[in-house]
Computed example of a mutant assay.
Amino acid sequence: MTSVDPPHGPRSPEQRKREALERLARDNDVWVATADAAGEPCLVPLAFWWDGEAVWLATRVTNPTGRNLSATGRVRLSFGHTRDVVSVHGTARMLTREELPAEVGDAFAAKDGWDPRKDHPSYVFFQVIPEFLQAWGTVPEMKGRTLMREGKWLV
């Protein structure tokens, strides 16, 4: 083991799933990666709310992330830091503030302390359904890092 490896070796898949779900419930921001039709990447941090099944994002439909999500629905999310990462590949569905269930908007605003529904009218919400989820810390955890595939938990 190197100095950056966990003292007790790699975490079990069950522990990684538990800690990944804790991160989704606790963290305030997520790195959001999208691409346009020409493949030009865009990476930005956004506030989010996890409802237990989907990640909810809010951004302006006029910025690159909003345009990319609207056009393709494809997104990759990265939670945590490089030594404890949760990576999610998912499909995003756009909802206007009028289409958004009030309880989702209220929960998003309560978690983040900011309510996009009361901000600029170009803000929309995206419901991201995870299809593929991986969680790992260091090289010894690379094996077994896939915890969800095709939207189904493997653990």
Rank of each mutant, 00 (worst) to 15 (best):
A25Q: 12
Y123D: 01
A58T: 04
E103S: 07
S78P: 03
L133N: 04
K143M: 06
G80T: 09
V4I: 15
M1Y: 10
V44G: 01
L100D: 03
S87A: 12
L95R: 02
W50E: 07
F132C: 04
A107T: 03
A37I: 07
A71M: 12
A35D: 10
S87Q: 15
E103V: 03
T96I: 03
V85C: 09
L95C: 00
A35W: 03
T65G: 00
V30W: 07
K118T: 15
A107G: 10
R97K: 15
F132Y: 15
V128D: 06
A109W: 04
G105K: 01
H120E: 07
F48M: 00
W49Q: 08
D84A: 13
Q127N: 00
T62E: 13
G39M: 09
F132N: 08
T96R: 10
E131G: 11
R93S: 04
F79C: 04
P41L: 12
G113S: 11
A92V: 02
L154P: 08
A107D: 10
Y123F: 15
K17D: 00
G137S: 14
T82A: 10
V86C: 13
F126H: 07
N68K: 07
L69C: 05
E19C: 00
Q134K: 14
G151R: 04
T91G: 03
A58W: 00
T34L: 07
A135E: 10
W31K: 11
V124K: 03
D29K: 13
G73W: 10
V32Y: 13
L24R: 08
R23N: 00
P41C: 13
E150I: 00
F125Q: 02
G9M: 10
G9D: 12
E141A: 08
D115I: 05
L43S: 14
L133P: 05
W31S: 09
I129Y: 00
S122T: 15
T65V: 14
A25W: 00
A71P: 01
A35H: 11
A107F: 01
Q134M: 11
F79R: 10
T91V: 02
V86Q: 06
R74N: 12
A58D: 07
L154M: 14
A33Y: 06
V32P: 07
P140W: 14
G39T: 09
A135C: 10
S12M: 01
L100E: 06
E14K: 14
N68R: 08
D5Y: 08
L57C: 11
D5T: 14
T65K: 11
T72Y: 00
